[in-house]
Amino acid sequence: MAHDHGHTEHKLAIFRGRLKFKSNVQKIWGVLIFLSIITIIEVAFGIFKPAFLVDNYFLGMKLLNWVFIILTLVKAYYIAWDFMHLRDEKSSLRRAVVWTAVFLIAYLLFILLQEGTYIEGVKANGFIKWDF
């Protein structure tokens, strides 16, 4: 009765099929190594803060912060896809979960960050000093 409960087989390739693993356990360790490398890169950037990334801006945010956010999203992707095995789920389940979150969060972020920037502008250019 061991294997008859019908869980789907694991997809063992990551990086769009460029890196294939022999077993699920091997894939788990591979993903751990990948996530560790990303974390080390993040920490190294956080400690050394390259001047080029700190002094240049894109859409009002330092390039360094964009790098951090993108690396975070990459990490989140591999945690969700391989540790939470979304990769092995039906695409309908995957979409129900991921798209809902992505759209709602993007909307929320847009509204709040836009408003925060506006209030900062009032504070900087208006006659109100600090306390609101």
Binding site: A101, L104, L108, L109, L112, L113, G116
Partner: peptide, 21 residues
Amino acid sequence: DALTFSGFLAAYGFSRFKFID
């Protein structure tokens, strides 16, 4: 739960952008 956390983090971002300087 992810939406709850993003609510928190977005509020954090709001306050941070408000006091960006």
